[in-house]
Amino acid sequence: MRGFDFLSPKSLIAALRAIDGKAPTCKLLAGGTNVIPTLRDGTLKPRFVVDLGGIKALNYIREKQGWIQIGALTTIRDLLNSPLIKKKGSLLWEATHIFAGPLVRNRATVGGNLADASPAADTAVPLLALGARVKLRSLKGQRTVPLNRFFAGYQRTVIKPGEIVTEVTFPVPARGRKQSYYKLGRRNAMAISVVSVAVLLQMKGKICTDTAIALGAVAPTPLRVEKAEGILRGKKVDLELVKHCAQAAAKSVKPIDDIRASADYRRTLCEVLVHRMICQSLGLEDAD
């Protein structure tokens, strides 16, 4: 017989108590846009479903001491409509703008998108570049995990039994930071990313003092390409260097062939798009 016990706690503590000890047979619902179809068709057969949607306290976007804090249950729509995100997290804002379609954006949440851990998760790529951290709570306490340590493998995270993602937070990018984001999909809406790229650069004159480059849909998880970042850091950025960096980025990914594109195409596009995004954010003339 199918079916599950449905629990809808109204507070975080109630939710933590509700899931306590039930881990293997319990599924959390945030926006539900990925989980519900699997409950409907029976691919997923949990004994308990805990809907976090009623925890209003986990829906917020605020700035605090130089950090942008986003409650895990904040919907993609709320991010898109947030002047704060548009202004101080524009990389993320751009990703929300082409996240699925409006109907999905009205339900899907940032916490759900990250916890789902799809390699193509749209919010993960800009958040990785922004140096985001994920806050996890359990009855035992709280811990913070940098997003680039959060994904443990294809659709796997470091979330432990009894833990709930409560917040995503990232430092407000310093003034003058350069940034660019691009998602290549097969359609202009309702598209799953073929390759997505987010680039953030801190420049002092022509010298790159810091950078973050994140890629999606080209490895088992969304990832930062640290080797490629290292090529730019501390150097005077010219087209030659950008080229090296883009090549290094393409070398550090592990894409697969799937229905949307081949691994080869994805690898090629990593190079093309990393190159393009760096040039675009710096206003460099792209020689290609």
């Binding site: 359609r187 202009n188 309702m190 229905i259």
Partner: peptide, 16 residues
């Protein structure tokens, strides 16, 4: 048909 839903069988959307 490996593409057997509307996330893989891609018909144009209003933005295309």
């Amino acid at each position: 048909a490996e593409a057997h839903d509307f996330s893989t069988y891609l018909i144009p959307t209003s933005l295309d």
